[in-house]
């Protein structure tokens, strides 16, 4: 089996697997990292979004071979309760979810946005999150939370 190298949450990885398998499948299966969620498996919902460089991509729609030598961040690498990312803090403050299944993908889309554009307006936030579906209707709180995180990051 060929192996594919990449950096995952800052750690060098070497994964032996069929390079045509999806990144999501590798993350959740082989690597046991279940923070990135399966929603549709077809690039249509954003539940599985991870960050590659400063772009959010659907891991279910990303073949393993395509991430060779790339820098991947998943929700597990975004922050921890001890060292939360400002987005995670803001989602708690704004109580910005209901069931929360969509949230890890949404946090990754938002994190990618803030990397590219640290001072987005609400229209830009909505655009950046437009590929993420939320069935519970928590959208407005999430947009507020992203704007709050951006403010906090600017103040830091």
């Amino acid at each position: 089996m060929p192996s594919v190298r990449f950096r995952l949450n800052g750690v060098e990885m070497d994964v032996d697997a069929d390079p045509d398998r999806s990144l999501l499948d590798i993350l959740r299966g082989q690597l046991g990292m279940t923070g990135s969620h399966f929603g549709c498996g077809a690039g249509e919902c954003g539940a599985c979004n991870v960050m590659i460089g400063d772009r959010a991509v659907a891991a279910c729609d990303t073949p393993l071979w395509s991430v060779a030598d790339k820098d991947i961040t998943t929700i597990e690498g975004l922050g921890t309760p001890e060292r939360p990312h400002p987005l995670q803090r803001a989602f708690i403050t704004e109580q910005a979810l209901q069931c929360g299944y969509c949230v890890s993908g949404i946090l990754m889309s938002a994190a990618a946005l803030l990397k590219r554009n640290p001072k987005p307006g609400s229209r830009e936030v909505k655009e950046a999150l437009d590929g993420n579906l939320c069935r519970c209707g928590s959208h407005n709180r999430m947009v507020r939370a992203v704007l709050r995180a951006a403010d906090e990051m600017a103040a830091e």
Partner: peptide, 10 residues
């Protein structure tokens, strides 16, 4: 909500 931190930290 007591369930929210777990969900935000995956």
């Amino acid at each position: 909500r007591i369930d929210i931190p777990d969900k935000v930290f995956a």
